[in-house]
Design a protein around this nucleic acid. Sequence first.
DNA 1: GTTAGCACTCTCGACAGGAGAGTGCTAACC
DNA 2: GGTTAGCACTCTCCTGTCGAGAGTGCTAAC
Lengths: 338, 338
Amino acid sequence: MLTERRAAILGMVVSEYISTAEPVSSRAIVARHRLDLSTATIRNELARLEEDGYITQPYTSAGRVPSDLGYRTFVEMLMLEEPVEAQEQRTIEHQLHQVVGGLDEWLSLSATILAGSVGNAAVVTRPRAASSRLRHAQLVELNHDTALLVAVMDDGRVRQRMLPLQTPASQALLTERAVRLNARIEGADARLARSVASELADPDEAGTVRAIADLIDEQRIAEETFLDGLNSVLRQPEFLDADRMLEAVATLQTYRMRGLLEQTMDAQLGSTQVVIGHEHGDDSMQEWSMVISRYGDEDAIGTVAVIGPTRMPYHRTIPRVRYVARLMSHLLHEVRQS
Amino acid sequence: MLTERRAAILGMVVSEYISTAEPVSSRAIVARHRLDLSTATIRNELARLEEDGYITQPYTSAGRVPSDLGYRTFVEMLMLEEPVEAQEQRTIEHQLHQVVGGLDEWLSLSATILAGSVGNAAVVTRPRAASSRLRHAQLVELNHDTALLVAVMDDGRVRQRMLPLQTPASQALLTERAVRLNARIEGADARLARSVASELADPDEAGTVRAIADLIDEQRIAEETFLDGLNSVLRQPEFLDADRMLEAVATLQTYRMRGLLEQTMDAQLGSTQVVIGHEHGDDSMQEWSMVISRYGDEDAIGTVAVIGPTRMPYHRTIPRVRYVARLMSHLLHEVRQS
DNA sequence: GTTAGCACTCTCGACAGGAGAGTGCTAACC
DNA sequence: GGTTAGCACTCTCCTGTCGAGAGTGCTAAC
């Protein structure tokens, strides 16, 4: 049972560990908070906290380190969020207004700013329509047995894919086919397109529509995800030795490819979600935490997230992710107005 | 003076060091090449090579390590290029044909393949028209004192930028202005646009045209550069300790931003250029080498490059960069046909 | 010009020892 | 029962030493 005092001590352990990255000793706790208790008493409480799984020892007779459960408890009930002060807000807004380019540059800059503000890596994904639909598809002859399929979505995305043909087709034929297929699936979502595909007799036509369905669904993670702050993360003491650092780079790179979306399907716009260590299904993410938020509006939603070791300043990160997400929603709205 | 024998020995030192990453001893040379000379003789020659600046010793009485001059000499006159065998060509082509998406995905995949093939990082930049011209510009009202400038180039690039206005302007006014300015600068290159800008009396109009000129010139490095193989590079023994690895990540990241183009302005299409260590002007690149090639055609040119430590298998890297660049030129041509 | 021999230098890994940090436990205390 | 002083114990980490090993430069002889 987590008594009030034990909870307080847990909070001290977690925040101390977050800021020092060193196992926290009973003495450090007493000293830092000028407690009117002896180290022995603290040690007794620490033993209980360890028994209950909130903290662990790296080795016998070292200080204590929070477990994932410890962090979770900290986030849920112990921490005091550190608000984004007016000064910092101004700095962030100022940087964000430096953008001279288009959406992509803006997203990339957002990731950079967020990463800088929290000292960990940040990821921003491009906003996407909740469920996109096909506006128009086109077929272009590449050579005698390959066509290029170009699909324009109603949220303005343009996707293309090479399409092998079973039966060679001229440009005229392809154009005619595109007109015919457009008539059937314009405005369709991926599901409808797939059901149409299954009704088509001609294998090339069916293939084309299936490809279109894929394109509607497709999340081109690599191109739609902006990652920055690799440097900041790698500077964290958990990656002091080269092997771990290498592993970290690999994790972040592959993670970038895989994308965050699957994890955050259920995140509400405006809320901020925290995933700590083993709470990721993924084995390679056991030592990482993410703070995730959505931004955008009903039309299109993107993701903002911070990634770092589980020893992360949640009390700073969470409000900052939330703030940036909100800011981005606003700015996106402003731009959309036009 | 570099006698023939000394040159041969230098070649052995360089290639041995490239493959083992360990300082090369006189004994290793004799043993590896079954020379009919004693180690003492080799030592004498090594001393001369060191005197002449081709090799150095990390510390007294360690083996020898090539200097930048040593690598340069190796590349220029000693190495035997290792051709890309038919089997490897097939593998590369096969991978490259996996692309289902558009140009960007294709470029990003090319970087990945090249990086994998040579075991170092690879960079690919998007092909750009040698000198682009404006096709059409548009002004959109964002709010009362900001407009969005959208410029379409004749090579199909679309660039946008927010434009602060000195005098507020309605959408009607902006549209009218765009029509007027288009009439004057459609088809203009950056230089012509700038000279037109200097003739305009209205500061907002002059500002707009200047911004257009910038956009024509602009190389949005961050978005136009595809980097892969960070992992491969970091696995090289030169980055065994964490500090160096951190430095390497930083270098590659900033390098990515800065782009390669300035370095390669003079590179001819089809030729392959090698820049070794201090030959970069840049301080942070003293320990890096690059193998650079251009691809594309008269209409648009991009860059393919491999980046790694100066201890790089030049004899493998150079032909592979050249091969990939050629392949990309072909494929680009094929796609352009359509 | 080549080579054997040898003294010398420097690195690197292993090992031991000691300081330091921190714990758990016990017994006494309030 | 909770609290605490005291203490033995454990584990890490730093330091210094030592010897093996690798490789060189030099000298003198071929």
